[in-house]
């Protein structure tokens, strides 16, 4: 009997630890007839350390955020671009399929076995005080994570505040930041509803956030072929879809919870959408320029990704 120890983070009650990883574990156990099990371990500390640690075998598996490694993961930014319809589930399925068809050959995940790709729920604006139009964002201090949200922040002219996700509540409570870019789920999980009671909701979000689920190469090589295949069968698109679906529901639950707490969630007006479209009009082009040398037909991939995501998300 073998155990996959998954290095994880975020609180144990978060859907990733309460639903996604346990379900994946159940699938693996069933598929391998009980020969391989899964156990969640919380090492604490910086989640960006997990990629190295899975590569070197300190954990058999882990999940982490592509945006923690600026400069390395350029192609995975594709799924974060504005204008991807279909929510977390659709985007996660599209993320995986496009990776298999186009992006895998650039080998950005070199050194580890990729088990799944997913995105969090649509990224929205959360503020301590309401605004009327996007132009009012200029000069505000906004906590921004890595990836495409950083580009959006620059385009809006906000002052980016860097802080790990776990500190967002604190810096908002202290007025160090006026707001944050985050999915709706964090209204609940990070208690943003208390410190940023005003949100602007874009129908597809302003951006998405790209995550990976990875396995150690040597661990997989050492497994019997049938177990290896069994694990991969319950990973890949199946796992990506599961993760996307759960993160999507987390976003919906967060929204409901925030509304119940008396938060104001304002749907983006046509004016706001037009402002946003204008701010981000060069994003596709800039992205395609940044991955010119990757040897991947990124333009076709992006087009196809949008189609798949929209189709899968509406199912």
């Amino acid at each position: 009997e073998t155990t996959i120890r998954v290095g994880s983070w975020l609180p144990p009650a978060h859907t990733m630890n309460a639903d996604v990883l346990p379900t994946w574990g159940k699938w693996i156990e069933e598929a391998t007839e009980g020969r391989v099990k899964l156990k969640i371990e919380y090492p604490g500390g910086d989640p960006k350390a997990l990629l190295d640690q899975v590569q070197d075998g300190a954990y058999e598996a882990a999940w982490t955020f592509h945006g923690y490694y600026p400069g390395r993961f350029k192609l995975t930014k594709m799924v974060e671009l504005p204008g991807i319809e279909g929510g977390a589930k659709g985007a996660s399925i599209a993320h995986w399929r496009i990776h298999e068809k186009y992006l895998a050959k650039a080998n950005e995940h070199e050194g580890v076995v990729l088990a799944g790709l997913f995105t969090h729920g649509p990224g929205q604006i959360h503020l301590a005080k309401p605004i009327e139009k996007l132009a009012d964002m200029k000069g505000k201090k906004i906590r921004i994570g890595g990836g495409v949200q950083a580009d959006i922040g620059k385009a809006m002219g906000v002052e980016g505040v860097a802080a790990p996700g776990s500190k967002v509540y604190e810096i908002l409570a202290q007025g160090v930041a006026d707001g944050a870019f985050m999915p709706m789920g964090e209204k609940k999980t990070l208690r943003l509803k208390e410190v940023a009671p005003f949100s602007i909701k874009f129908p597809n979000g302003m951006y998405l956030g790209s995550f990976m689920i990875i396995l150690n190469q040597e661990f997989m090589d050492k497994l019997e072929a049938k177990d290896r295949e069994a694990i991969m069968k319950v990973s890949g698109e199946k796992l990506s879809a599961l993760a996307g679906e759960k993160w999507g529901s987390e976003a919906e639950a967060g929204e409901k919870d925030a509304l119940a707490a008396g938060n104001t969630i304002k749907e983006a007006t046509p004016e706001i959408l037009a402002e946003f479209a204008d701010m981000t009009k060069d994003f596709d082009k800039n992205f395609l320029d940044s991955v010119k040398d990757s040897g991947v037909d990124a333009e076709a991939a992006l087009k196809e990704m949008r189609e798949i995501s929209k189709a899968e998300g509406s199912k």
Partner: peptide
Amino acid sequence: NDWNWVAALSMSARRIIDT
């Protein structure tokens, strides 16, 4: 960790780097 030295070194090294 079945005397996997690289794993243990990597865990420790990342602690040093990140801290």
